[in-house]
Design a protein around this nucleic acid. Structure first.
Lengths: 355, 355
DNA sequence: GTTAGCACTCAGACGCCTTGAGTGCTAACC
DNA sequence: GGTTAGCACTCAAGGCGTCTGAGTGCTAAC
């Protein structure tokens, strides 16, 4: 029974300290925590009996549970949530770790795709959970540059560079035109399409088709514009370009996932490209870290996992998401500060690329 | 005791039929197979007692085992190997499935990266195991085309297209040069570098540095060539560009991987980019399907898994690997014919691209 | 409000027994 | 000779009771 306050609200300092100790102990050991172990390991200044009373209150308030009568307690999702809210703000990553991460980022070539992978693997390495990152996805794609490259006898590659970074490549049939002629074509396309969005490319395509007679010879031009339009549209439509996940092995090591059934469900959810995309919308674009615990992730299958996510990038321009996935029994303070730090780094990188 | 022949060699027809039946039953049920179930399900024309005698012979010859005295038998790796060798050649994929796979390949745009992913996911879907595919990796990369694109105020993207297909993108500092100037630079680079290998790019770089005075203004040219050299070298050195794996969830469903410890080891091996690269070398380049069962994979961690792999592509040009990963208890005939068929399709695609 | 003491609870470990699927052997059969 | 029926034997898996110990909740004293 809750003696004093059943109402939600700030806990008494002593209760908060005990909840905190229970969570930290449970995170460390994955074993239900009993009153005696708690007193012996943490200098709480009270006896086990008192701790038991407080535990009973915390349980009545919904922050702890029992697996069975004579077992120790472990936190509920609500308990973790309270804990997270109590520590979310003021923590910074240890300087040593900052340095380590910066060092890793320094190693990599400025090749855009590498970053996201690096972000994911860095997060995984530092937090010992799974690291996730999506590529920076802008609101709507624009053509930066088109290039055509002869490619054997019959084919040519069309290389499309988008303002937002990604490079796309598709095949065209070139009927053996020499490179010089392809260059001319590319020049025309660049003149017409540089800076254009998908809709604008569509419009140009219609124009081309209307005054067909004049350009009829250049069926290849039409073909190219068709492909470009399709690529830009595809880019706009793609929910999330790609989710890089690294260190899923770390999650497999957690005892809560010892039998692979639970694990399978989590993996299945993660494979769904649209899922993380959906979470993105729930993230404010302010760029601060958000924590989703258990059911809060919006997926029943994920009831045993927690996500610590942050968006990065610049709202008008490109944005993406990165973060960490682990069991709800997660070292939240460390995970939060790591995610915050890495998302800061990624902001710098995005600014640099989409300046 | 083996009554007749302990020597390896072709089994008597009846023994072979029984081994075959045991394997098929075990593949289907994942349960040890007893003599009575076998007789009742498969029309063998003999009594359980006879089957038991044969089983004892097969066990003495190393093709079957016992988990304990009173349990049914299941195949050893050697048993699977014999079975695989007895069926490897003459099987073709069912026309329905051929059609289904072709259909899937028809759906995809001719964008090179998609193929490998598609191959992997098709294999996964059809065989209900995990599908693997590496990108087509040629012996040594050559520059096809260089392009430079202004990129905000300070930076430029250098886009490098290799003869072998891949497109690389890195950032350069452009000090605000206009696009026109970048085009001129790119033109110079194309003139000099098109068709060149990494070593040849190196040579050009040395040239540039030697007669520094003349071109001193174009530090950016030097910077660009440096990057290009590095990219081509990296491409040459990369063991395997990327391994696309799809449908690992399928493997997680197999009862032999019910506890995730075993699974974890397998995943860990797969993450090692060099591992599959090593297997590539063990594949003859004739393009036929190779089967690695348990320890044959060369990794102790993989003792419970089997790989069915084929190389694809053209020896002199680009080659890659694709295949299927599953428990040793795998439907080999189906897996083999599927892998063979898909690798045939990939051959066509590679011919088309690297014509 | 805190604490010591004590009765109570219950998962997990251990040992025991039973069950049944499956074997290996032997002797009869063709 | 190979094949088969019969039978004793084996052993994992499951059910069942017991024991143990960590941990609780309650009550009464501080």
């Amino acid at each position: 029974m809750a003696r004093r306050k059943d109402r939600p609200g700030p806990l008494e300092p002593r209760s908060a300290a005990i909840l905190r100790a229970i969570i930290e102990e449970y995170v460390a050991t994955a074993q239900p925590v009993g009153s005696m172990t708690l007193v012996s390991k943490y200098r709480l200044g009270v006896s086990p009996a008192t701790v038991r009373n407080v535990m009973a209150e915390l349980e009545a308030a919904g922050y702890l549970t029992h697996s069975h009568t004579s077992a120790g307690r472990h936190p509920t999702d609500a308990g973790y949530r309270l804990y997270v809210e109590s520590i979310a703000d003021n923590i910074a990553l240890a300087p040593v770790e900052q340095l380590m991460i910066r060092h890793q980022f320094g190693q990599v070539e400025f090749a855009s795709e590498q970053w996201f992978r690096l972000a994911a693997s860095t997060l995984a390495g530092v937090t010992h959970a799974a690291g996730l990152a999506t590529a920076a996805k802008p609101a709507a794609g624009r053509v930066r540059r088109v290039d055509m490259v002869a490619n054997g006898t019959r084919d040519a590659s069309l290389v499309l560079v988008l303002v937002e970074g990604p490079v796309k490549q598709v095949l065209l049939t070139s009927d053996g035109r020499p490179q010089a002629q392809l260059d001319t074509l590319a020049q025309i396309l660049n003149g017409r399409l540089a800076g254009r969005s998908a809709l604008e490319v569509d419009r140009y395509l219609e124009d081309l088709r209307d005054r067909a007679p004049e350009h009829a010879a250049d069926l290849m031009l039409v073909q190219a514009v068709e492909r470009i339009a399709r690529l830009v549209h595809e880019f706009d439509a793609s929910a999330v370009e790609d989710i890089f996940s690294e260190g899923l092995l770390n999650v497999m090591e957690a005892p809560e996932f010892a039998r692979s059934e639970k694990l399978r469900r989590v993996f299945a959810v993660l494979q769904d490209r649209h899922y993380l995309g959906g979470l993105v919308r729930r993230l404010s674009t302010t760029g601060d870290v958000h924590v989703f615990i258990g059911r809060e992730t919006g997926h029943e299958e994920m009831e045993d996992v927690a996500l610590v996510l942050a968006s990065y990038g610049r709202p008008g321009r490109a944005t993406g998401v990165l973060g960490v996935l682990g069991p709800t029994r997660l070292a939240y303070p460390h995970a939060i500060s790591t995610v915050r730090y890495v998302s800061g780094l990624m902001n710098e990188l995005v600014d640099h690329l989409y300046a």
